[in-house]
Amino acid sequence: MTHTAQIQPTFEVWRSKARELLRQGVTPENVDWVDASQTASLLAEEPANYQTAPNASVKVPADFLRLAQNVCAHTDERRFAILYRLLHRLTLGGEKHLLGMPSDRDMHQCNAWAKAVSRDIHKMHAFVRFRLVGVNEPNGREQFVAWFEPEYRITRLAAPFFEKRFASMDWSILTPDECVSWDGEKLTFMPGMSRHDAPAADAHDDLWRTYYRSIFNPARLKVQAMQSEMPMKYWKNLPEAEIIHDLIASSETRVRTMIATPERPVKPSPDNAYLRKLHAQQHAD
């Protein structure tokens, strides 16, 4: 018999449903996984339906849960099915060593998805830019808002990092899928918003661009190396990205100017007690 597992696309919901199916001994080829958020069906099962089911019967390694958490955040529609097949093979299928076999097809696929998701999380940690919007009057906490467009559904996975780092500020990160905010006590998750709900700039962006311009070395231009680490899809939300083009365009002239500069003669040593001591020591060596 074919089961249709229509679920909200989160790790928690997938895990509950997968546990239930596994307990019934349902084999992977008999489950049809459907993302309820894509089909808007009234039949979508709510996570609450599963909260009561005890989970003691199925034990899987913690490594699998970590993998599954990332895989569920991916957007490939095959992810729930392949993940369930992996779970089934690992438990009822008796393939206990599967997690140590990166060359297995299912493992390979899930590892690739998990890696893409973890890279996306890493880039979110790197490229979120907070904008100061005000101060919370009663307690004096500064309030910041950021707009970010991750590739996958990673808001929940990326949020704890910001909590640890910016616990003393109030902040919100808005994304198209899901938003998160921190008030000093707890993280709150909300539905996605639009770019226009976030401030477009911060007073410090100019100073940051000044730094970015000055730390760049025009004599070592490596545009591809930059782009492979900071793909252009992220540029529209990075305040510094708007000057990249000018920096590249002016590099050649800047280096030519350096080369055309007459070489500076050596100036004599100034009269300084510390230098005298240093030079005396050098000569004694």
Binding site: F161, A167, S168, F216, V223, M226, E240, L247
Partner: peptide, 24 residues
């Protein structure tokens, strides 16, 4: 980290590159 609410910031684990300049 600063979960005690008093300070600012965190370290540990992987470093993060917050941007890249055109010199790569």
């Amino acid at each position: 980290d600063s979960r005690d609410g008093k300070g600012l910031g965190s370290t540990g684990g992987m470093g993060i590159c917050h941007s890249y300049t055109p010199d790569g």
